[in-house]
């Protein structure tokens, strides 16, 4: 990041000084000052100010419950889930999908769960990690000369834009909201999970967590204090309601989201 201009620095000092000065006067939160009214027994909840509302959906207490909630939520979001016993079943599924949809080119990244899916796939593949050869099979950085050059990155964007589907791993699956947490470090950067019209996610059953907070915590531990430059919760296929508030899928991101969960990741 470039150094801030001197003008920017003085603005920063002024603003921070104003914030400090403003906060010198305490301000009680108006609604916390008095207790919330309680609804009568069996009555409707009081929705006026003061009553607490259950904002957060349940994520389940046991792994089985959590998995069921995740699968159910994904269905409501019009995403497709496949629960499969092992990797060879998953590879068969990707093979069939490729045939049926007539995919010509599938984009992917280096990832231990992704590689076996593409071994026998009947179409061309494109690996986003091939520009600059920067990571090993586990997504760890081995060699980075400042990343892809301008021309390389333009070519990479073009290549990715021309793919019919993208396959990624994920950081975690969140039951509470039916979300998939991806990161720029372990899921093929920023473009792979959003530019191709179909996004396939491959995950293992033990990657399902109950809440958004759990998923963030997991990512924090995995990346030990140095979070990837992008972390994104994907909750269903891309959508918009901007035209007369009618739901349309596939606004700018993928139209379809397919999640494959395998119970046993060993081949």
């Amino acid at each position: 990041m470039s150094a801030p201009a001197p003008a920017g620095r003085s603005a920063r000092d002024t603003i921070l000084a104003r914030v400090r000065e403003a906060l010198a006067a305490p301000a009680p939160l108006p609604h916390l000052a008095h207790h919330a009214p309680q609804p009568a027994a069996g009555g409707l909840p009081i929705l006026s100010t003061g009553a607490s509302r259950p904002w957060l959906p349940d994520g389940g207490d046991t792994p089985a419950e959590t998995m069921n909630i995740f699968v159910e939520n994904l269905g409501k979001l019009r995403a497709v889930v496949h629960r499969l016993p092992d990797m060879s079943a998953a590879a068969d599924l990707v093979f069939t999908l490729t045939r049926e949809r007539d995919w010509r080119r599938i984009a992917h990244h280096r990832h231990p769960l992704v590689a076996p899916l593409l071994a026998g796939v009947p179409c061309a593949t494109y690996c986003v990690d091939d520009h600059g050869h920067c990571v090993d099979d586990h997504g760890h950085c081995v060699d980075d000369h400042g990343g892809p050059s301008g021309a390389e990155s333009a070519a990479a964007k073009d290549a990715l834009e021309g793919c019919d589907a993208g396959i990624t791993g994920c950081e975690a699956l969140v039951a509470q909201t039916g979300s998939i947490l991806v990161s720029s470090a372990t899921c093929g950067g920023r473009g792979l999970s959003v530019l191709p019209p179909v996004h396939l996610v491959i995950a293992t059953a033990d990657q399902v967590v109950a809440t958004l907070g759990d998923a963030l915590e997991e990512a924090r531990q995995r990346h030990a204090g140095r979070l990837p430059s992008m972390l994104s919760f994907i909750t269903g296929p891309s959508r918009t309601g901007d035209i007369e508030r009618i739901l349309v899928l596939g606004a700018h991101g993928p139209r379809e989201l397919i999640v494959i969960i395998v119970d046993d990741a060993r081949a």
């Binding site: 990041m1 990244h109 986003v128 990690d129 520009h131 600059g132 920067c134 990571v135 997504g139 760890h140 950085c141 081995v142 980075d144 990343g147 892809p148 990155s153 990479a156 964007k157 979300s179 720029s184 470090a185 093929g188 950067g189 920023r190 473009g191 959003v194 979070l227 990837p228 430059s229 992008m230 972390l231 994104s232 919760f233 994907i234 909750t235 269903g236 296929p237 891309s238 959508r239 991101g253």
Partner: peptide, 16 residues
């Protein structure tokens, strides 16, 4: 659908 956190430009090891 998308809730995304950004903490800077591309990091070494990230492909884009």
């Amino acid at each position: 659908c998308y809730n995304t956190l950004y903490s800077g430009p591309r990091r070494p090891g990230e492909c884009d």
